[in-house]
Design a protein around this nucleic acid. Structure first.
Lengths: 340, 340
DNA sequence: TACTATGTTGTTAGCGCTAACATTGGCGTG
DNA sequence: CACGCCAATGTTAGCGCTAACAACATAGTA
């Protein structure tokens, strides 16, 4: 097994390969770039020399002249949460398949300033394009205002004016969930939403509302949490006190977990007295008490589509603000039943 | 031949700044690199010109000549899990503070081949150093075998022969947890471990065993899960069937969640009949039924130390295989009580 | 035969930056 | 005042690669 790097000796450069193969360095370059105008004999010689020397092309030199870094910047907030971290993973895999590197910038705090700073860092680094995974409302305007001369794909944003967007259709997902509750016979369906100012929050509220409107049902209580199980717990106690609903659509699985705990403590049976549906389908939701009915999002697909959209802009140069939607899927488990 | 019109679009280069400031490009370079031998007057002129043109230094050109990319590669498996994703976030922040970019490679499958492939990609990219966040046993040997001519810091590995290691002292954490159970009066303490072949599994088993040995207690049952709540649930049922323990130390919080569910279904009260302690302290653990006692790991600190270790190797050139340990903290909540 | 089209290879000129050395001018010293 | 010294600046030569063009051989066409 050849060592990966040549230890003390200077790493071989194209010229070394060329000499060994008895050709010019440009021919080596042609082989490396898959130029068809290379004879089979030469190709073989060059490839042999490359292997023999363990030659690897210098990215910096290549980038300098091509003005391409083969790197995609991913700007992410809430990086350690379930959705974002899974999207990040998928993004990374899709990028690798397309032979791109992924550079990440995690935002601890989301403000126009921190976003701009991160973007400037990406520019400094010379990334070819940027994927923005920041689910805050207003992110879109912030990005447009920066007026970057680079392809940008925003996750969760509708595409307009120069920015492409790829999103999971959370409105449709929320609507599916609520429609399912309605089909079970529920008539008073509340929503424990995420914090205002999140794209996801708005979309999920929208889906909940649309389903109720469509069925001609009145809106149940709309409560605002902060995605945490803690807030779900707090709001669950409030709901238990007020009564008056037979089903709750929770903005995510964590808050649903808080709800379940609050209801259990209040002696309210789930799904006997109240049905609960979450959103996300994180792996543990299956093991809540009872197992949580929820809406599953396909992050893998989301990541793949993002990279596709970005590469399309990179190659085609089209900046048409295309918008792609991935549709989520309702998963029915043990927290939903017909009202009594 | 110089182009006739210097198109507005062309990004300014150092020479443009130099011209505007009335100096040579080298002086601009000196300003940018903080060279002290620049007069105050010149410094000001150059900085003014930089701002006026919105000049940003070209990283590729810089890397080409300095042979530094200012990029750190992070190799991670299980990227979307709680611990790793938090570590990744911390790593990224610490790197940014030191003015380094972070390039990630997420491993879908951990084998010597996938690791080698990812490492080769990092080499191609020209990273200055690599941080490996792959908690599988044997990762260390795999890395050493690759014989990389690059600083590598492995998370969770003890440092020897050319590789530095930074780890959370999970053995100490596990020991703390079990000693606490012993202090409550428990005498039959089982362990639901993670899958064999994980560094973390081994360390936590080690801590559990050490505490029992030290107290002169017999080892309770040792069961192997796979980190998932599902496996915890399965093993919980088994424990419920066998009985014979008054406390379980779970290898992580997810499995603890599964245990809680299994015990609830079996009519076993926690902490009345059995005490449970988890490991990780993920945010939702506080909202389990009852709130989970667990061991908190400081990923922020871990990330910071990793970057420190890597930068030390980068700057000092020392490859001393230093080993740093971060000590975790026991968090006592509602799943632990004295046995009856 | 001459002449063009085509495929294969080599040569040259940078990409934008930093390192190394060269040059200048002002200062203190003998 | 000649001397060296040092701080401030300029000049030159690449880093390793690709793009553009030049150079040639070969084959096909008039």
């Amino acid at each position: 097994m050849t060592p990966i790097s040549e230890g003390q000796n200077r790493a071989p450069v194209m010229e070394d390969v060329a000499k060994l193969a008895g050709v010019s360095h440009q021919t080596v370059s042609r082989v490396l770039n898959g130029n068809p105008n290379v004879s089979a004999r030469t190709l073989e010689k060059v490839q042999g020399a490359i292997v023999e020397l363990g030659y690897r092309r210098n990215t910096a030199a290549r980038s300098l002249v091509t003005r391409r870094s083969n790197t995609i910047g991913v700007l992410a907030s809430e990086m350690s949460q379930y959705g974002p971290s899974n999207t990040l993973l998928a993004l990374q895999q899709a990028a690798r398949e397309a032979d791109y590197f992924v550079s990440i910038a995690g935002l601890a705090e989301v403000t126009p300033e921190t976003i701009e700073e991160a973007m400037l860092r990406f520019l400094d680094q010379g990334v070819d394009g940027i994927i923005v995974q920041v689910p805050h409302a207003g992110i879109f305007e912030t990005l447009v205002k920066l007026n970057l001369d680079l392809p940008v794909v925003a996750i969760g944003a509708a595409g307009t004016s120069g920015l492409s967007g790829v999103a999971i259709d959370q409105t449709a997902g929320a609507r599916q969930a609520v429609e399912y509750l309605i089909s079970l016979g529920h008539q008073r369906i509340g929503h424990v939403a995420g914090p205002a100012g999140w794209v996801d929050t708005q979309a999920r509220i929208g889906g909940w509302r649309a389903a109720l409107d469509h069925a001609g049902l009145p809106e149940g209580p709309l409560l605002e949490g902060d995605w945490s199980a803690n807030s779900g717990f707090r709001l669950g106690r409030e709901i238990a006190r007020i009564g008056d609903v037979t089903a709750i659509f929770a903005g995510n699985d964590q808050m649903a977990l808080g709800l379940l705990r609050a209801f259990a403590e209040a002696g309210i049976s789930v799904p006997g007295d109240i049905s609960v549906v979450g959103f996300d389908d994180w792996p543990e939701s299956e093991f809540f008490l009872p197992p949580l009915s929820t809406v599953r999002q396909d992050f893998q697909e989301l990541g793949k589509r993002c990279i596709q959209a970005l590469l399309a802009e990179l190659d085609g140069g089209a900046r048409d603000g295309a918008s792609v939607q991935v549709v989520p899927e309702l998963v029915i488990r043990g927290t939903t039943a017909a009202p009594h």
